[in-house]
Protein backbone atom coordinates (compact mmCIF):
# COMPACT_ATOMS: atom_id res chain seq x y z
CA UNK A 1 0.00 0.00 0.00
CA UNK A 2 2.84 2.33 0.92
CA UNK A 3 4.37 2.04 -2.49
CA UNK A 4 1.09 2.95 -4.12
CA UNK A 5 0.89 6.18 -2.15
CA UNK A 6 4.45 6.98 -3.16
CA UNK A 7 3.56 6.37 -6.80
CA UNK A 8 0.61 8.75 -6.52
CA UNK A 9 2.70 11.47 -4.85
CA UNK A 10 5.46 10.95 -7.36
CA UNK A 11 3.22 11.90 -10.27
CA UNK A 12 1.81 14.88 -8.45
CA UNK A 13 4.96 16.84 -7.58
CA UNK A 14 8.41 15.23 -7.95
CA UNK A 15 7.70 13.98 -11.47
CA UNK A 16 4.88 16.30 -12.44
CA UNK A 17 4.39 15.65 -16.15
CA UNK A 18 4.09 19.31 -17.09
CA UNK A 19 6.49 21.20 -14.84
CA UNK A 20 9.14 18.58 -14.15
CA UNK A 21 9.11 16.13 -17.05
CA UNK A 22 8.07 18.84 -19.55
CA UNK A 23 5.87 16.35 -21.36
CA UNK A 24 2.57 17.01 -23.11
CA UNK A 25 2.91 20.75 -23.01
CA UNK A 26 0.57 21.54 -25.89
CA UNK A 27 -2.68 21.23 -23.93
CA UNK A 28 -1.09 23.04 -20.99
CA UNK A 29 -1.02 26.19 -23.09
CA UNK A 30 -4.01 25.58 -25.32
CA UNK A 31 -6.92 24.66 -23.08
CA UNK A 32 -5.93 26.56 -19.97
CA UNK A 33 -7.92 29.71 -20.67
CA UNK A 34 -10.39 28.58 -18.01
CA UNK A 35 -10.20 26.21 -15.06
CA UNK A 36 -13.23 24.33 -16.31
CA UNK A 37 -11.54 23.38 -19.59
CA UNK A 38 -8.32 22.43 -17.82
CA UNK A 39 -10.11 20.23 -15.30
CA UNK A 40 -12.20 18.60 -17.99
CA UNK A 41 -9.24 17.68 -20.18
CA UNK A 42 -7.31 16.56 -17.11
CA UNK A 43 -10.05 14.12 -16.16
CA UNK A 44 -10.12 12.76 -19.71
CA UNK A 45 -6.35 12.23 -19.50
CA UNK A 46 -6.67 10.45 -16.14
CA UNK A 47 -9.14 8.03 -17.68
CA UNK A 48 -7.03 7.37 -20.76
CA UNK A 49 -3.84 6.96 -18.73
CA UNK A 50 -5.35 4.61 -16.16
CA UNK A 51 -7.22 2.51 -18.69
CA UNK A 52 -4.23 2.19 -21.04
CA UNK A 53 -1.85 1.43 -18.17
CA UNK A 54 -4.16 -1.31 -16.93
CA UNK A 55 -4.73 -2.76 -20.40
CA UNK A 56 -1.03 -2.90 -21.17
CA UNK A 57 -0.24 -4.30 -17.74
CA UNK A 58 -2.77 -7.10 -18.14
CA UNK A 59 -1.82 -8.07 -21.68
CA UNK A 60 1.92 -7.40 -21.43
CA UNK A 61 2.88 -11.05 -21.80
CA UNK A 62 0.92 -11.30 -25.06
CA UNK A 63 2.52 -8.26 -26.71
CA UNK A 64 5.52 -9.18 -28.78
CA UNK A 65 8.42 -6.86 -27.82
CA UNK A 66 9.10 -5.92 -31.42
CA UNK A 67 5.65 -4.50 -31.98
CA UNK A 68 5.16 -3.01 -28.57
CA UNK A 69 5.12 0.64 -29.71
CA UNK A 70 2.45 0.16 -32.40
CA UNK A 71 0.50 -1.97 -29.94
CA UNK A 72 0.65 0.79 -27.29
CA UNK A 73 -0.43 3.37 -29.83
CA UNK A 74 -3.45 1.29 -30.78
CA UNK A 75 -4.39 0.76 -27.12
CA UNK A 76 -4.17 4.51 -26.43
CA UNK A 77 -6.07 5.39 -29.61
CA UNK A 78 -8.76 2.92 -28.61
CA UNK A 79 -9.35 4.47 -25.20
CA UNK A 80 -9.12 8.00 -26.56
CA UNK A 81 -11.76 7.21 -29.16
CA UNK A 82 -13.98 5.72 -26.48
CA UNK A 83 -13.64 8.77 -24.20
CA UNK A 84 -14.12 11.05 -27.20
CA UNK A 85 -17.38 9.38 -28.17
CA UNK A 86 -18.70 9.22 -24.61
CA UNK A 87 -17.97 12.89 -23.91
CA UNK A 88 -19.40 14.09 -27.20
CA UNK A 89 -22.56 12.17 -26.45
CA UNK A 90 -23.09 13.07 -22.80
CA UNK A 91 -21.63 16.56 -22.41
CA UNK A 92 -21.57 18.25 -25.82
CA UNK A 93 -21.42 21.76 -24.31
CA UNK A 94 -17.98 21.48 -22.74
CA UNK A 95 -16.78 18.97 -25.32
CA UNK A 96 -16.99 21.33 -28.26
CA UNK A 97 -14.52 23.75 -26.65
CA UNK A 98 -11.71 21.22 -26.33
CA UNK A 99 -12.71 18.70 -28.97
CA UNK A 100 -9.42 18.77 -30.85
CA UNK A 101 -7.37 18.26 -27.70
CA UNK A 102 -9.42 15.30 -26.51
CA UNK A 103 -8.59 13.65 -29.83
CA UNK A 104 -4.94 14.68 -29.56
CA UNK A 105 -4.52 12.85 -26.24
CA UNK A 106 -3.35 10.02 -28.53
CA UNK A 107 -0.06 11.78 -29.14
CA UNK A 108 0.48 13.09 -25.61
CA UNK A 109 3.95 11.85 -24.88
CA UNK A 110 3.22 11.36 -21.19
CA UNK A 111 0.86 8.46 -21.76
CA UNK A 112 3.04 6.35 -24.02
CA UNK A 113 6.11 7.05 -21.92
CA UNK A 114 4.36 5.70 -18.79
CA UNK A 115 3.31 2.58 -20.71
CA UNK A 116 6.86 2.01 -21.93
CA UNK A 117 8.63 2.84 -18.66
CA UNK A 118 6.20 1.45 -16.13
CA UNK A 119 3.10 -0.49 -17.12
CA UNK A 120 4.93 -2.86 -19.44
CA UNK A 121 7.06 -4.12 -16.56
CA UNK A 122 4.87 -3.93 -13.47
CA UNK A 123 1.75 -5.79 -12.33
CA UNK A 124 -1.75 -4.37 -12.50
CA UNK A 125 -2.10 -2.60 -9.14
CA UNK A 126 1.07 -0.47 -9.20
CA UNK A 127 0.40 0.32 -12.87
CA UNK A 128 -3.03 1.57 -11.90
CA UNK A 129 -1.63 3.85 -9.21
CA UNK A 130 1.19 5.06 -11.41
CA UNK A 131 -1.29 5.94 -14.16
CA UNK A 132 -3.60 7.60 -11.65
CA UNK A 133 -0.74 9.60 -10.12
CA UNK A 134 0.50 10.83 -13.48
CA UNK A 135 -3.02 11.69 -14.57
CA UNK A 136 -3.70 13.61 -11.37
CA UNK A 137 -0.36 15.39 -11.63
CA UNK A 138 -1.24 16.40 -15.17
CA UNK A 139 -4.67 17.63 -14.08
CA UNK A 140 -3.07 19.55 -11.22
CA UNK A 141 -0.68 21.23 -13.65
CA UNK A 142 -3.47 22.19 -16.02
CA UNK A 143 -5.63 23.53 -13.18
CA UNK A 144 -2.80 25.60 -11.73
CA UNK A 145 -1.94 27.23 -15.04
CA UNK A 146 -5.57 27.82 -15.94
CA UNK A 147 -6.42 29.24 -12.52
CA UNK A 148 -3.65 31.82 -12.86
CA UNK A 149 -4.65 32.67 -16.42
CA UNK A 150 -8.35 32.86 -15.73
CA UNK A 151 -7.87 34.97 -12.60
CA UNK A 152 -5.55 37.53 -14.13
CA UNK A 153 -7.04 37.43 -17.62
CA UNK A 154 -10.74 37.61 -16.89
CA UNK A 155 -10.95 38.20 -13.14
CA UNK A 156 -12.84 34.95 -12.81
CA UNK A 157 -12.40 31.54 -11.24
CA UNK A 158 -14.59 28.73 -12.56
CA UNK A 159 -16.55 31.25 -14.58
CA UNK A 160 -17.49 33.22 -11.44
CA UNK A 161 -16.54 36.87 -11.34
CA UNK A 162 -14.13 37.56 -8.49
CA UNK A 163 -12.50 40.87 -9.21
CA UNK A 164 -12.76 43.39 -11.99
CA UNK A 165 -9.47 42.57 -13.61
CA UNK A 166 -8.72 42.29 -17.29
CA UNK A 167 -5.19 41.58 -18.24
CA UNK A 168 -5.90 40.43 -21.77
CA UNK A 169 -2.46 39.05 -22.53
CA UNK A 170 -3.02 36.22 -20.04
CA UNK A 171 -5.89 34.83 -22.09
CA UNK A 172 -4.00 35.13 -25.37
CA UNK A 173 -1.72 32.20 -26.29
CA UNK A 174 1.32 34.21 -25.24
CA UNK A 175 0.00 34.32 -21.66
CA UNK A 176 -0.01 30.53 -21.46
CA UNK A 177 3.67 30.40 -22.35
CA UNK A 178 4.56 33.12 -19.83
CA UNK A 179 2.64 31.46 -17.00
CA UNK A 180 4.18 28.03 -17.59
CA UNK A 181 7.64 29.56 -17.79
CA UNK A 182 7.17 31.34 -14.48
CA UNK A 183 5.57 28.38 -12.71
CA UNK A 184 8.44 26.14 -13.85
CA UNK A 185 10.94 28.67 -12.55
CA UNK A 186 9.05 28.77 -9.24
CA UNK A 187 9.23 24.97 -8.95
CA UNK A 188 12.99 25.16 -9.62
CA UNK A 189 13.37 27.88 -7.00
CA UNK A 190 11.48 25.89 -4.36
CA UNK A 191 13.64 22.86 -5.05
CA UNK A 192 16.72 25.05 -4.85
CA UNK A 193 15.65 26.35 -1.42
CA UNK A 194 15.05 22.81 -0.14
CA UNK A 195 17.92 20.86 -1.66
CA UNK A 196 20.36 23.62 -2.47
CA UNK A 197 20.66 22.39 -6.05
CA UNK A 198 19.27 23.71 -9.31
CA UNK A 199 17.67 20.74 -11.05
CA UNK A 200 18.57 20.12 -14.66
CA UNK A 201 15.14 20.90 -15.96
CA UNK A 202 13.32 18.76 -18.51
CA UNK A 203 13.71 19.08 -22.20
CA UNK A 204 12.52 15.54 -22.61
CA UNK A 205 9.98 14.43 -25.12
Amino acid sequence: MNRNVTLLWNGLIPENPIFRLALSLCPAVAVTTSVKNGLYLGIAVIFVQVLSSCTVSIFKSLIHPRIRIPAYVIVIALWVSVIDMVLSAYDPHTYEKIELFIKLIVVFAIIISRLELFASKEPLVPSFFDGLGMGIGFTFGLCLVSAIREFFGLGQIFGQDIVDLKFLVMILPAGGFFVIGFVMATFNWIEYKITGKIPASGGGH
Partner: peptide, 17 residues
Amino acid sequence: ATFKGLPIAFVVTGLFA
Protein backbone atom coordinates in the same frame (compact mmCIF):
# COMPACT_ATOMS: atom_id res chain seq x y z
CA ALA B 1 19.68 30.30 -12.41
CA THR B 2 16.10 29.20 -11.78
CA PHE B 3 15.08 30.30 -15.27
CA LYS B 4 17.85 28.40 -17.07
CA GLY B 5 16.71 25.95 -19.69
CA LEU B 6 13.02 25.47 -20.28
CA PRO B 7 11.48 28.31 -18.23
CA ILE B 8 13.26 31.02 -20.21
CA ALA B 9 12.48 29.16 -23.45
CA PHE B 10 8.82 29.38 -22.53
CA VAL B 11 9.01 33.09 -21.88
CA VAL B 12 10.76 33.62 -25.23
CA THR B 13 8.07 31.58 -26.98
CA GLY B 14 5.48 33.80 -25.32
CA LEU B 15 7.15 36.83 -26.86
CA PHE B 16 7.15 35.13 -30.28
CA ALA B 17 3.48 34.32 -29.84
